[in-house]
């Protein structure tokens, strides 16, 4: 076990962190702007992975599958927002939690009906199938580098969107003072839809590009959901910046936890979260 091994682990951790960021940023935005605790957010990640599985198979081209799949995911998300989430604005968090939990059951079961209970795989696209040699014996898969690059590009796009566009301006204003934005006459309905669509798009995209390295199965949404919650809690609810650093911290902690403490790998991340919370009860980058 030389340092190359740790380098590889670190790269894996960062790559996982990027994926977590894409999912957690949507979760934190939907809460910060819309005031909704969305347990079904992980389900959109899973829907993305299944869309990638289905469309890559149907079109024979992974990238085409992603290009078609993201809009499908977003439209699906918007339909759900119009049909279901509109009833949740200004409702108690408890009811939001239960409603979105009900949605998890429904979406999960619909997926089982469509694609069965089995674990599916999505093959890495041919042009990204190789590895980069790090030493004589160790190599790093190109596709994982691609994931990180795609995430960096997406994250960059997200930050630019929030910083420089009119929508971004409304998002920032809304995160710090929702009532003010409502009073200013912004169409809150459309803002909510935009934010929700954005969140779903990010989660579905993350699910798609992660599909070739992770298996595609009906409980994958749960795993990423809980991890994203941990990221949001650690980073501070409502903060994009917090979501980013939280995601990196958790991605690395999870990866190295599995290296150093294989039996207690799952617990490491939560212990870290508990530590952060004892130190800062509202997260590292609390919005307020």
């Amino acid at each position: 076990m030389d340092y190359t091994y740790y380098l590889i682990q670190a790269m894996n951790g960062i790559q996982y962190g990027f994926l977590l960021f894409l999912v957690a940023s949507g979760l934190t935005l939907v809460f910060g702007i819309m005031g909704i605790v969305n347990l079904a957010h992980g389900a959109f990640y899973m829907v993305g992975a299944y869309l990638a599985y289905w469309l890559a198979g149907a079109t024979g081209n992974f990238f085409l599958g992603v290009a078609v799949g993201v809009p499908i995911g977003v439209v699906l998300g918007l339909v759900i927002e119009r049909l279901g989430f509109v009833h949740l604005y200004h409702r108690d968090h408890l009811l939001q939690v239960l409603f979105t939990f009900g949605m998890i059951l429904v979406i999960g079961e619909l997926i089982t009906i469509l694609w069965g209970d089995d674990v599916h795989g999505v093959s890495v696209p041919a042009m990204l199938a190789g590895s980069v040699a790090l030493t004589d014996t160790q190599a790093y898969p190109v596709y994982r580098l691609f994931i990180s690059a795609a995430c960096i590009a997406t994250a960059g796009g997200l930050l630019a969107l929030i910083r420089y566009t009119r929508l971004g301006m409304m998002i920032r204003a809304s995160a710090s003072n929702r009532e003010m934005v409502e009073l200013m006459g912004v169409d809150v309905n459309r803002l909510n839809m935009a934010v929700f669509g954005l969140g779903v798009g990010l989660a579905a995209f993350a699910g798609m590009i992660a599909a070739p390295v992770n298996s595609v199965h009906p409980t994958m949404g749960d795993d990423i959901l809980i991890m994203s919650f941990v990221v949001v809690v650690v980073g501070g609810v409502g903060s994009i910046q917090g979501a980013f650093w939280g995601a990196m911290l958790i991605g690395l902690a999870d990866t190295f936890g599995a290296v150093f403490l294989p039996e207690a790998a799952g617990v490491v991340v939560y212990a870290l979260m508990a530590l952060v919370l004892v130190w800062r009860p509202s997260g590292l980058f609390a919005a307020r």
Partner: peptide, 25 residues
Amino acid sequence: RTSGIYFIMITLALGQMTYLFFHDV
């Protein structure tokens, strides 16, 4: 020490930690 949404998320996460403890060990 927390409230509202944080309390929900933290009990969820710590409950899940307990789950993993019995699941992984």
